[in-house]
Simulated scan of single mutants.
Amino acid sequence: MAPSDPHHHGHDHAHTHAHSHGPASPHPAQVAPWSILRMTVVSRVGAALAVSAGLWAIVWLAMR
């Protein structure tokens, strides 16, 4: 893709970005709206059991 291409989205064009970090540093971490790591152990076990039951239901239906 040539730099003069209007659809080129590289960082070699003239307009500026509202980034708050330097071009060589990675993007800062974003706040996650939901994380399994913030769930209680009981919630994690419950979620794992629900997912497992759903997968077993799929297997059971496929074998019928």
Score class of each variant (00 low, 15 high):
Met1Thr: 11
Ala2Ser: 14
Ser4Leu: 02
Asp5Ile: 00
Pro6Ile: 00
Pro6Glu: 07
His7Trp: 08
His9Met: 11
His9Leu: 12
His9Phe: 02
Gly10Ile: 00
Asp12Tyr: 06
Ala14Pro: 05
Thr16Leu: 12
Thr16His: 15
His17Asp: 15
His17Glu: 14
His17Leu: 13
His19Met: 05
His21Ala: 13
Ser25Met: 07
Pro26Val: 05
Pro26Cys: 06
His27Met: 09
Pro28Gly: 10
Pro28Ser: 03
Ala29Asn: 03
Ala29His: 03
Ala32Val: 01
Pro33Met: 08
Trp34Glu: 13
Ile36Pro: 00
Ile36Glu: 15
Ile36Leu: 12
Leu37Asn: 08
Arg38Trp: 08
Met39Cys: 14
Thr40His: 02
Val41Gly: 04
Val41Asn: 13
Val42Phe: 06
Val42Leu: 10
Val42Ala: 13
Ser43Leu: 04
Ser43Thr: 04
Val45Met: 03
Ala47Gly: 02
Ala47Gln: 11
Ala47Trp: 15
Ala50Asp: 09
Ala50Tyr: 11
Ala50Thr: 09
Val51Cys: 11
Val51Arg: 05
Ser52Phe: 04
Ser52Thr: 08
Ala53Ile: 05
Ala53Val: 07
Gly54Asn: 05
Trp56Ser: 07
Ala57Leu: 14
Trp60His: 06
Leu61His: 01
Ala62Gly: 07
Arg64Pro: 01
Arg64Met: 06
Arg64Trp: 06
